[in-house]
Design a binder for these strands. Structure first.
Lengths: 341, 341
DNA sequence: CTGTTAGCGCTTTCAA
DNA sequence: TTGAAAGCGCTAACAG
């Protein structure tokens, strides 16, 4: 049970602990080919595995990073962590993923726990509510990468979607098809940059096309269980919207459920664009048009930034990657509407 | 930056390192309330966080467990790891999740890496190809829990679905609706117990109802990209099946794609039952009948077994949980067919 | 009630 | 080309 230690190997090979250590760290330069083979042999015989904990204590590197995701229920979080894990494993790093559940208290606890574990760096999609702590870390030179969500007053490496553009693209698509009454259905913004930006993109697209912004078409939901109420409100407006943009995956799913139950036809009664990808989307009837983020690649990229920072901790330079989203046009918006300029 | 250590706290509080250690480990018994407060104060002032790596080296417990899942692309793996993580985090354990990609070599590397990291235990959905190593671990008393897949010749704690029954239920459902030509579409079995059992359930259900087993209705796929070819083969049979059971989520998705493209109507041309759950299922047209495993709970349960084993390493007793699956009947099997006994 | 001491298993000068 | 020795930060007898 990993009970055998360096000393045992050393004894068996007839050398000292330090020589074995040299061998393990691939410092072969001044080692006779003969001792090297003896050590190799001894390791094989004993089944020796070096104790990474002891090593970490000494070298002050754990080769482990921490990841805190916002809400693991979202496919988005899962995809990001997969990207991170794949990249890290390929580069000999381990990953501890924690799910903060969009809860600032949990988030803080996880950050502290991961630091106590001596992780070499941190990737996080933060609530934007622990900026005091994070600021201190960044200023102390601790390797940190933000993903998905920008943080007020914190300058750090980061990987973000171009959410404003994503929204503008989606809304512009509606407009091109002749829609003028376009609703937005978003989770409550709180302090989250990506939500703010998607809202901003909605406003901007409408303005650019000189379409009046109507408060009644803009809906933020606090508890996802309120979806039905809100969608019905929209549908029962004197002039109901002809198009609806849902700005994340959970709101998209819940909206579609309600529309299906209410037998509202997509796209003839209302055109719909959703957010985020899933293998099931193209199986829907009609197949759903969505804005797709490069989630997996965002994970990979953020891991890359972090490992770079870890290798090279003194670069003061901040790198920020903005990743474009793609509007995947399927059939849930129909075709050009009649009566359009 | 976690730079402050126990000694600094001790100095500031005017006590010795060991007293601080006592405090941290909540051995208050013989500690004057006064020193206790002084230490508390000193910790607050310095922002001390104890170094878990050093502690682990000493106490030979890392409070970390390793999880190796088969294929993180499956919602199934994700759901299990979520269950594990939730339970572990609640009990002060960390989790390192590794994705073996159904690759025995990767799996072995991960096992060794996790052992080198001195994890306190391991949960795995194994390829069944590293049994030599695993057997040694179990025999050495190392805490190990199997999940989803049984292993040949290894007696260990485990949590599994009742796959035979799940299959029997699905096929019986078809039979009750009047189907007699029932096809099975499964990933290649290799050495995987859960696949074997689902196949077994298929055979058993047919036998129980005195329906002849027809080789041409039984399809195993090696590369998922072969799905189209195989499904078309089935459809073009002289007597094509009227019902199709897909035994995991990937085969289900790919099959549905092909059926949709080929404009094969579900359920009138062919009835379909899939495997595993997704929030999107009820949005399909028709909503898909599936066999649902208690994935999240399987994760929780396996974590529970593992932490028990870790607390109590000398119990020779093996606990195995078999979790029932549920057939969620939606509309993809239609109703009772005409011309039936 | 608190401090002294001896490691946990490994790395890394430095000296031989 | 190899070995001796010190120490990473913490814990746990044991002594006082």
């Amino acid at each position: 049970m990993a009970r055998v230690k360096m000393e045992d190997v050393a004894k068996l090979a007839g050398v000292s602990k330090s020589t074995v250590s040299q061998y393990l760290n691939k410092r072969y330069e001044y080692m006779s080919i003969e001792t090297r083979q003896r050590i190799e042999q001894a390791i094989k015989e004993t089944g020796y595995q070096r104790n990474v904990v002891a090593r970490s204590l000494k070298v002050k590197k754990t080769h482990t990073i921490g990841v805190i995701v916002a809400n693991i229920l979202h496919y988005f979080s899962t995809a990001i962590s997969r990207g991170i894990e794949d990249y890290c494993n390929k580069h000999g790093f381990n990953v501890i993923v924690c799910n903060a559940d969009d809860n600032p208290v949990k988030e803080r606890e996880y950050i502290e726990m991961l630091l106590a574990k001596q992780v070499d760096g941190l990737i996080l999609a933060s609530t934007n509510e622990n900026n005091d702590l994070l600021k201190k870390l960044v200023e102390g030179g601790f390797p940190l990468v933000l993903v998905d969500r920008k943080l007020d007053g914190i300058e750090a490496d980061g990987v973000f979607s171009n959410n404003v553009k994503a929204s503008v693209d989606a809304i512009s698509h509606f407009i091109k098809l002749g829609h003028r009454s376009i609703a937005l259905f978003s989770p409550a913004i709180k302090k989250l940059s990506q939500r703010k930006e998607r809202y901003e993109g909605y406003l901007r697209a409408l303005s650019q096309h000189h379409i009046e912004i109507q408060e009644q078409y803009i809906k933020f939901v606090d508890k996802i269980s309120d979806t039905r109420k809100i969608i019905l409100e929209l549908l029962h407006l004197p002039v109901p919207p002809t198009a609806l943009f849902c700005t994340n995956d959970l709101t998209t799913i819940e909206t579609l459920k309600v529309l299906k139950e209410e037998k509202v036809n997509i796209p003839s009664d209302i055109a719909v664009i959703g957010f985020d990808d899933s293998p099931w989307l193209q199986l829907l009837e009609p197949p759903l048009t969505t804005v797709v983020q490069q989630t997996y690649d965002m994970g990979v990229k953020s891991a890359e930034l972090l490992l770079n920072k870890i290798e090279n901790p003194h670069s003061k330079h901040c790198t920020v990657h903005i990743m474009d989203c793609q509007l995947i046009v399927r059939e849930s918006c129909g075709f050009l509407r009649a009566g359009v300029d």
